[in-house]
Design a binder for these strands. Structure first.
Lengths: 194, 194
DNA sequence: AAATGATGTTAAACTAGATTAACATTTACT
DNA sequence: AGTAAATGTTAATCTAGTTTAACATCATTT
């Protein structure tokens, strides 16, 4: 497996010596998942934080009525996990499922703790990554309360054009917190608006 | 100002030497805000990450119609900032305003960068803090999409009984993403349910 | 190319929650 | 104590988004 995109990503945040790079690579599992396979399953303890080398995943929560609620999509150069489950090593609230064949660089819980001890710079790396994710998450909360579904859809399309084209509409509706029927209505309104 | 609760909090996450403790304290501003004062204002670049020693704040976003949307409340032993603004040093989306007289331990942007360099353990501290905040934020997104307003209110009351009692109902309604009138209706239903 | 399953659309009836407006209660100030 | 301001309640009307159901389109397999 080609580890270059992963190492290049890391080096944007922290400069690793070649020794550290070797150590890091030795503790990471590079893994291929097929379309529809689960990287993380609700109820299991989440054992990994995953960097996506190629492919696409959805993170979703299945509610008591069996309805799927998509929390996020992840594509190349993004991370995916159930961080709440991972950091506390308790059962996951979320599923992470592949929407395409997906290659990931996987940090397991034990390996990551060891890596933090051996390469303290990685604390900085993950601090920065999680800070960004948290800031994005807070903005999303605001949007879900202060904007209409139509406005949220337009922002989504602008912000994630690559995802918009790769993912079926009914999943985008779920991400936006609306039904697929209503998204369909919004889209036909948008065509009419022009 | 009594710095004990702050140092005790830090030591729950990382063990500082007394030298590090002294250095840390020298780079922190302890500050008193009065009720209604702003710690952070929308539009300004956010210059601080704040640990609350005593008091209570609301973090909110004012939309184009002049409506307030509360993102979070913070009380003793919590943190508050506009992290998106802080890490990128761009204008803040959020306001942080004191709901009571509030004492904080303040990390400014420049000081925090220096502290990270001098006490690398702090990278670990903030990594862990932000991880928790992010996990909580993702759960909140799910709740806002998969639960009714009544269910969200009950969870809020359970999870944050201390805040529920300190904050007016109309702000709790804003946090829940509903109107004060509808929260009032929910409450009267709950009394009737018993 | 026919058949099956997955995805997307339309429209009618419905509901959770918003809006408006009038009133009640509590708090804080003089 | 009395008044004004802030907070909370109730009820009628309205609307963004849901539900249900029927149909349309597209992709995949045989």
């Amino acid at each position: 497996m080609d580890t270059t995109p992963f190492i290049e990503y890391i080096n944007k945040y922290v400069n690793l010596t070649s020794k550290e790079e070797t150590l890091l690579l030795s503790k990471i599992v590079f893994r291929n998942y097929l379309k529809d396979q689960y990287i993380i399953q609700q109820g299991d303890v989440c054992k990994s934080v995953n960097f996506i080398i190629s492919g696409c995943t959805k993170t979703f929560y299945m509610d008591l009525e069996g309805q799927e609620h998509i929390v996020m999509f992840s594509i190349e150069d993004w991370w995916t996990s159930d961080l709440g489950s991972f950091i506390t090593q308790t059962p996951a609230d979320f599923n992470v499922q592949c929407l395409e064949n997906t290659k990931v660089a996987q940090f397991t819980f034990d390996n990551l703790e060891k890596l933090y001890a051996e390469i303290p710079k990685l604390e900085r790396l993950f601090r920065m990554i999680v800070e960004r994710a948290f800031a994005a998450s807070q903005k999303r909360i605001i949007r879900s309360f202060s904007l209409t579904a139509k406005e949220r859809y337009l922002i989504f399309r602008e912000a994630y054009p690559k995802i918009d084209q790769r993912v079926p509409q009914y999943m985008i509706a779920s991400y936006l917190g609306i039904t697929k029927e209503f998204l369909s209505k919004i889209k036909s309104q948008l065509i009419y608006d022009q």
